[in-house]
Nucleic acid binder design. Sequence first.
DNA 1: CAAAGTTAAGGGAACGATCCCAAAGTAACT
DNA 2: AGTTACTTTGGGATCGTTCCCTTAACTTTG
Lengths: 339, 339
Amino acid sequence: MKRVTIKDLSKYLALSTSTISRAFVDDKHIHPETKRIVLEGAQKLGYRPNPMALSLKYGKSKNIGFVVPEMTTPFSSTVLRGVQNVLYPLGYRVIIMQSDENPEIERKNLLLLEEFNVDGIIINLCHETFNQATYQQVMEKGIPMVFFDRIPPRTLDVSKVLVNDNIKASLMVEHLISIGRKRIVHLKGPSSIRNAEERASGYRRILTKHQLFDPQLLVEPQGMLFQHGRDAAKELIEKNIAFDSIFAFTDTLAIGAMNYLLEQGYRIPEQIAIASFSGTEMATIVHPPLSNVQQPLVEMGETAATLVMEKINNAVAPCQSVTLDAKLIYRSSTLGNPV
Amino acid sequence: MKRVTIKDLSKYLALSTSTISRAFVDDKHIHPETKRIVLEGAQKLGYRPNPMALSLKYGKSKNIGFVVPEMTTPFSSTVLRGVQNVLYPLGYRVIIMQSDENPEIERKNLLLLEEFNVDGIIINLCHETFNQATYQQVMEKGIPMVFFDRIPPRTLDVSKVLVNDNIKASLMVEHLISIGRKRIVHLKGPSSIRNAEERASGYRRILTKHQLFDPQLLVEPQGMLFQHGRDAAKELIEKNIAFDSIFAFTDTLAIGAMNYLLEQGYRIPEQIAIASFSGTEMATIVHPPLSNVQQPLVEMGETAATLVMEKINNAVAPCQSVTLDAKLIYRSSTLGNPV
DNA sequence: CAAAGTTAAGGGAACGATCCCAAAGTAACT
DNA sequence: AGTTACTTTGGGATCGTTCCCTTAACTTTG
């Protein structure tokens, strides 16, 4: 019950605490035989080092904060997997905070993490334009931050992990054109999110290039939930705006829209093809499965974790920006036949 | 940059550290005026107590482990929400571990959490029959555990949060019968999970009662993923076993099966009605949306967190078993018209 | 007015580990 | 034999807080 400490071991083996400690930290100033004895004794008494003592001594909690807009879609949880892959073996713990797409909650989460004494923060913003002062403030307190997916404006010099949004969005739109679609709707994300602008800009560029652009087709839903995708589709139909395909900012918006259309009896993809940008498992559990731009989510998490560790191990390490490559996956929602 | 400690404050105000401390812990042995001065000084210097010092002193890390089979479906993340609701305001951190439905990983996760010095563990087992010795061992080290959803066999006296699986499964099957279905398939969960048996038993009881039971209709998929639900549906079709409805152990299995049937051109619910047991958001994002037994997930998390806190605050508190009430939600997958 | 009680504040040990510094022992070389 | 160098071990400060134990000043009471 009672914790076995280095002192108990010291008494038991008639050795100083210094010597015991040396056996565990691979210090060279210890006789191999002594080390063996110590390790054996530790085994016997069931000694396990107390991480809290080190936390206090070195001012490191070995906690990393992971802040995301939500955890109900598989996006964040897949990235989390990558983060854990890297951090758990290093003895770091990961603490998750959900911001509910609400900048105010996001801000509170950051302050709470600071309170919790995390050594670093990996974050996917809810809206990029709101909490810049807070990010700055947190970093000034010596807590390194790494941003992924949604990153703050360039004015902030920070480490970040992103994908080539603009290009891949373009390619997906090209794909829709290649299967003969001419009235391509874009369900855009909020303007306060850079990726939303990037993807929309890719969309716009390609449509303009093919002389297919029509401002009526560029719609911005009220939010990022299924319901918002649904409402957007409904509005298009009710306004009698003709369209033969949809390219959505995220799987969530795409699925919301698709469900409305299916309910209304539209055939997907024959009448309306649907594609999105995300790469979550959700794209494969709906029927028909969604074509989308699949981001390397696990790798994003691993990269973000690696970047934050670099910052932790070297406070003056320069900020890095890593761009990962997203893949286009074609599924039934834009093709005639099931995969 | 440098942390402001109680000592800095002590020097700055020419007061002993004891007095400073007293101002923060609401000790009565301090003059109100002195207290005011201290709090003011703390504000000015930006003093914030260091939780790590307390962790060391009291041997409490203020970390709680949250172990789940997976985080990609919204089940666990919704429960997590409830857990966080309770624990974050109390200054407790939540550390998440994913077991991937693999008892070996689950075991490693538990040992890792022990290493991480958590004060308590909230867990949803992957399979109930494998790691009992480990659970016992962890609890003997003084780390309280609370189980939810999938709980260990009765031989282990532990705190747990569950729902009335058997009854609600029965009611859902009754519902299928009430809409005229006679050939009701059950996609059962693995026998190593008690809930699976409970729900299957409810199913069996009702079918038997109505003299509709046919062992051919009780199938156990190879696993718990979408793919497994899909494969199970495929096998039924290929074996030419007639059925007009499915009641699945989880949303995941139900959706997997439904997608296969939709691909094959079956009409849901006209030809085959589908219902499940879970209560995740997934049931509402597929088309048609699924009827299911909706568990109060957030409340489950809150209850589990409350139970674990009771155990932490009082090591000899008796184990409690809380049964929450699940609700039946009828959606288009068992009714003719969309909701 | 002295003894006892009350109130406010200070001193210092404790939590568990690491690591700097010192000390003792041994080996090697002039 | 004496100096130097190296190896191995021990002592004790340190991290930031709380809390037990004193101490000092002031108040009450017979």
